[in-house]
Amino acid sequence: MKQSTLELKRNRRKVVAGQTGRDYFDFIVDGKSLIEILEPSDLIGCLGWGCPEIEKHTIAQLLAKELPEPESGRVPIYICPECGDLGCGAVTARICEESESYIWSDFAFENNYEGTVELYSEIGPFAFDKAAYSKVLKKRETEIVA
């Protein structure tokens, strides 16, 4: 499988009247914004805007060190920009740690009351070099102010 690159890039939610503006980190895969590829409704990246404890937990899930919360076994990567609750819906991906890679696959839109609502079968899988991927997420983890 071809190796992909992962970067985190600051982004700002495009808002309309009554919505909360949010700065967050977008996932850039092979130089392209993953949110733009997925084209979900109004969602933002799971990093860069929540409380430090939740963000550290999210990073642990992205590193496959903690179990994902949805029963599907997928990790939320784009979430509700108002509250971050899975009940509002999220884009999720299965994240597997292998000997030399992290693999993102089985992208879906899901929530915690209907389960998987829509599969993104045309997206991924993406294989990231383990060392480079870990470096990106660990760098973000050190930036989190407790």
Rank of each mutant, 00 (worst) to 15 (best):
residue 145 V to K: 06
residue 140 R to L: 07
residue 93 A to H: 09
residue 35 I to W: 03
residue 38 L to P: 12
residue 100 E to K: 12
residue 22 R to S: 06
residue 129 D to Q: 04
residue 22 R to A: 11
residue 134 S to D: 05
residue 39 E to S: 09
residue 24 Y to F: 15
residue 56 K to V: 13
residue 62 L to S: 07
residue 55 E to S: 04
residue 78 Y to N: 01
residue 16 V to N: 00
residue 16 V to P: 00
residue 57 H to E: 14
residue 46 C to P: 01
residue 69 E to S: 05
residue 83 C to G: 06
residue 49 W to H: 12
residue 45 G to R: 04
residue 3 Q to N: 14
residue 77 I to A: 00
residue 100 E to G: 04
residue 47 L to T: 13
residue 61 Q to H: 02
residue 1 M to H: 07
residue 40 P to H: 02
residue 45 G to C: 08
residue 82 E to A: 12
residue 20 T to L: 13
residue 127 A to I: 06
residue 6 L to N: 03
residue 117 V to Q: 09
residue 42 D to K: 13
residue 77 I to Y: 00
residue 131 A to Q: 12
residue 83 C to Y: 05
residue 116 T to L: 03
residue 2 K to E: 07
residue 38 L to Y: 09
residue 75 V to F: 03
residue 15 V to C: 11
residue 121 S to R: 10
residue 115 G to W: 02
residue 46 C to G: 07
residue 128 F to M: 05
residue 48 G to E: 14
residue 57 H to Q: 11
residue 59 I to R: 02
residue 5 T to G: 04
residue 63 L to K: 11
residue 63 L to W: 06
residue 59 I to D: 02
residue 86 L to M: 09
residue 12 R to V: 13
residue 33 S to P: 08
residue 54 I to D: 09
residue 135 K to D: 06
residue 135 K to G: 00
residue 21 G to T: 15
residue 140 R to A: 11
residue 17 A to T: 05
residue 27 F to A: 10
residue 104 W to L: 04
residue 66 E to V: 14
residue 94 R to E: 06
residue 25 F to Y: 15
residue 37 I to S: 10
residue 104 W to I: 02
residue 48 G to K: 14
residue 123 I to G: 08
residue 19 Q to M: 12
residue 19 Q to S: 09
residue 5 T to L: 04
residue 41 S to T: 13
residue 18 G to T: 11
residue 127 A to V: 07
residue 62 L to N: 05
residue 11 N to K: 08
residue 93 A to P: 05
residue 142 T to W: 01
residue 138 K to E: 12
residue 86 L to E: 08
residue 30 D to S: 12
residue 76 P to R: 10
residue 11 N to V: 01
residue 72 S to T: 15
residue 137 L to T: 09
residue 40 P to N: 01
